[in-house]
């Protein structure tokens, strides 16, 4: 029971006549990093706003730590830190004043400086926010979500506008938090951004959940390919098929590798048959491609 910190069931949300979320259900395990991935406009921010009790929804239930969440039931929000869409920043306050303003009374100055340190914001934390660049504002927004050390952290496209170094710092922070038992729900429209970070993946398209799985399952499901370039591709394909090699049905000429596939065997087989090999490459079909295939194949049913 206590394993699940966030539970969303049969959530439906309309904006006017437009149905933006259709029967969305998923749950988040305590201590996991969960990626919410989908194209722009899929409904990622909308899900997160609903989870934060920011608006009414047509039907469904949302619970955090067993407590229901809605605009009129906010008690669970005490355990949540979030950055949604873009950070809200008062230009007339300094970064530090933002952290002071929004952090709980129980959050000490040391805790504030700790997050400033980790986010490497020291050099400008006492400057007025109107002088901040986009990336600095984004970092401040993330710091605001983390400063109270909440149990559940919700970050909506947090890598937006961060330079590679800041991106790396953020990953380190996220992994550290998860190690200490913090649960994170992170959205992105680019899976590769989250690939190395998340334990579980929730894929959403046009307001519907199309896929939920652990990363381990997804990775084991992706295939390894041996991509070939030969003097006679047509003949080579024929020969390989006859020898029980599984050919990939993508646009490139490739063999799907399994444990028994040895490159040397393939090369020998082909050269024995008088085919010259110009190039051989191992390709790990990446998650991005599997995701795109998923979104393509799993044609979201229009209701």
């Amino acid at each position: 029971m206590s394993d699940t910190i966030l539970n969303v069931e049969h959530l439906n949300k309309n904006f006017g006549k437009k149905q933006v979320l259709k029967d969305v259900s998923f749950s988040v395990q305590t201590g996991h990093i969960v990626g919410l991935v989908g194209p722009n406009g899929a409904g990622k921010s909308t899900i997160m706003k609903a989870v934060l009790g920011l608006f009414n929804y047509a039907s469904g239930t949302i619970t955090i730590d067993g407590e229901p969440v809605s605009p009129t039931s906010h008690k669970a929000m005490d355990k949540v830190g979030a950055l949604i869409e873009y950070p809200g920043i008062y230009p007339f306050l300094t970064g530090y004043q933002h952290l002071e303003l929004f952090s709980k009374d129980s959050t000490s100055k040391d805790q504030i400086m700790d997050i400033v340190d980790k986010m490497k914001m020291d050099s400008y934390i006492n400057r007025k926010a109107k002088t901040y660049s986009l990336g600095m504002k984004q970092k401040l927004g993330i710091a605001l979500a983390l400063v109270d050390r909440p149990k559940l952290v919700i970050l909506d496209e947090p890598m937006n506008g961060l330079d590679p170094q800041a991106n790396k710092d953020l990953r380190t922070i996220i992994l550290d938090l998860a190690k200490q038992g913090t649960t994170l729900l992170i959205s992105s429209h680019i899976l590769s951004e989250l690939e190395k970070l998340i334990d579980d993946l929730v894929v959403i398209d046009k307001g519907q959940i199309v896929y939920t799985k652990s990363m381990a399952e997804l990775e084991s499901g992706s295939k390894k390919l041996l991509v070939l370039k030969t003097s006679d591709d047509a003949k080579a394909k024929e020969i390989l098929a006859q020898n029980n090699y599984q050919l990939d049905n993508g646009d490139k000429f490739a063999i799907v590798e399994n444990d028994q596939t040895k490159m040397a065997d393939v090369i020998k087989l082909l050269s024995d048959n008088g085919i010259d090999i110009d190039d051989v490459q191992h390709v790990h079909s990446d998650l991005e491609t599997s995701l795109l295939n998923l979104l393509k194949n799993d044609k979201v049913k229009e209701s």
Binding site: K49, G53, L54, K75, M77, D78, P87, G88, L144
Partner: peptide, 10 residues
């Protein structure tokens, strides 16, 4: 855009 920060709290 600070309205979200104000409203999602307890």
């Amino acid at each position: 855009g600070t309205i979200k920060e104000l409203l999602y709290r307890k």
